[in-house]
């Protein structure tokens, strides 16, 4: 597997470590990490800024009719005029998204663990999961509204359904990715299966889980909004539908913008959590950063 490159790399490190005294291995401070984050992510921000300028340029030069594409100014005005309106609906969608995401994680992780424990269960559940994944959510969302009413229920359910699949798949992969020799070693230590799970299998699966969570985070936002499209009196999906009906493109654009930001924000939070909880993984992934210290 990775052992070859890894040990070669480690060899270089060792020398660097001996020279500087490995004691200060505690990792970069918060300031440094923030600097590192900016350094790594200025490119997407630059691209974002460029797109923004393009948007502004297109509307300022009146290349398209304002009722088709509103200018950035108009869009922000739409928010500024009714900040509490947007705040309220953003909050509703955020609530649905986060709740759906959290439920999806809980159910997904438990399902994955159960499936890895029992292959019968895995064979039984997999087709069902796949079915739940491939069925278009927009098509079954109306049914949820019929069942659960206009409240938060159907939105959260759609969010859960959308976010659930990547969580299960990544967790199952993670739990199965453990080096079999590690498990053999564990059995020579007389470990109980619970010990092996908590000390070896579960931590080893976390990097996989987190890559699934990143996908799931963005899916949860989509799920909540899809749920709102089908029937709601609150939330960003509702705002967009209403604005669409009134041909109020500035509000529509404002809704889209906030919705995207919500997805990005959730993604960034998951990524940040990953760095916080799995520093060993992050430092291995972007090594080089530590050799130059």
């Amino acid at each position: 597997m990775v052992t070859h490159t890894q040990s070669a790399r480690a060899g270089q490190r060792e020398r660097a470590g001996e020279a500087s005294g490995v004691a200060e291995r505690s990792g970069p401070g918060l300031g440094q990490r923030l600097g590192g984050f900016l350094e790594r992510s200025w490119r997407p921000f630059a691209l974002l800024a460029a797109l923004f300028v393009a948007w502004w340029g297109v509307t300022a030069a009146e290349l398209v009719e304002p009722y088709l594409v509103p200018s950035p100014g108009n869009t922000f005005d739409a928010i500024a005029v009714r900040p509490e309106y947007f705040w309220e609906h953003t909050w509703t969608t955020t609530y649905e998204t986060v709740l759906g995401f959290v439920i999806a994680i809980a159910v997904g992780v438990i399902a994955a663990v159960a499936m890895v424990q029992s292959s019968t269960l895995e064979k039984t559940l997999y087709p069902l999961l796949l079915f739940a994944q491939v069925i278009p959510k927009i098509a079954i969302a109306p049914l949820f509204v019929v069942w659960l009413g206009f409240g938060l229920g159907p939105k959260i359910l759609v969010a859960v359904l959308m976010a659930f699949f990547p969580v299960v798949i990544s967790m199952v992969t993670g739990l199965k990715s453990v080096d079999p020799e590690m498990l053999q070693l564990s059995s020579t230590m007389g470990a109980k299966s619970g010990q092996t799970f908590w000390k070896i299998r579960f931590p080893a699966s976390l990097p996989h889980l987190f890559s699934g969570l990143k996908v799931a985070a963005t899916m949860a936002v989509t799920g909540a909004v899809v749920g709102e499209f089908v029937g709601a009196d609150a939330g960003l999906g509702f705002v967009i539908l209403q604005a669409n009906g009134n041909l109020d493109t500035p509000v529509l654009f404002a809704g889209l913008l906030i919705m995207s930001l919500l997805g990005v924000l959730l993604f960034v939070i998951v990524e940040w959590l990953e760095q916080l909880l799995l520093p060993w993984h992050a430092s291995r992934r972007d090594e080089g950063a530590s050799t130059t210290l």
Binding site: T3, Q6, S7, R9, A10, G11, R13, E14, G17, G21, V22, A23, R25, W280, S283, R284, E287
Partner: peptide, 15 residues
């Protein structure tokens, strides 16, 4: 001196 080092920070021999 290497008690607190993570495996990827150790050489193959140290591992």
């Amino acid at each position: 001196g290497f008690e607190d080092a993570l495996p990827h920070e150790l050489s193959g021999g140290m591992q």
